[in-house]
């Protein structure tokens, strides 16, 4: 069963994003196919070189870079949301696949989860 976890909240505002990421990592830990889709405000997770120490937190872009090590199959970002927040391949972390969420992506997964 393939799971897609939707990340649609900006980082650092609340814990829902961390919890969603934790869930994705846990699925990966048990070798369950899981991918992440960043959309809406959620694409701000992907901005490169966040210095979260300034607000006494851990940088989510660095946390995310561990996703493929843990076995998360893909990191998708909604193209329109990226455009809206001025994100392109130069300002985003590596390994992101741009997706058009209105197209078939959601249909490829048996289980789509959004925690917020």
């Amino acid at each position: 069963m393939k799971t897609l976890v939707i990340m649609n909240q900006a980082p650092y505002g609340d814990w829902s994003g961390r919890e969603a990421l934790d869930m994705a990592f846990s699925l990966a830990a048990f070798d369950q196919p899981v991918a992440l889709l960043f959309t809406g405000d959620g694409v701000n997770w992907l901005r490169r070189e966040q210095e979260a120490a300034a607000i006494s937190q851990k940088a989510v872009d660095r946390n995310l870079a561990a996703a493929t090590i843990f076995g998360v199959t893909a990191l998708y970002a909604d193209q329109q949301s990226c455009h809206r927040f001025g994100l392109d391949q130069h300002t985003m972390i590596a390994g992101i696949t741009l997706a058009d969420t209105n197209a078939g992506l959601l249909g490829e997964y048996d289980h789509v989860i959004s925690l917020s």
Partner: peptide
């Protein structure tokens, strides 16, 4: 790993995977 990712592997399984 910690320097790169600002986190510990969250569980034993993920530690083994890493």
């Amino acid at each position: 790993f910690y320097k790169q990712h600002e986190m510990s592997p969250p569980s034993n399984r993920l530690f083994v995977k890493a």
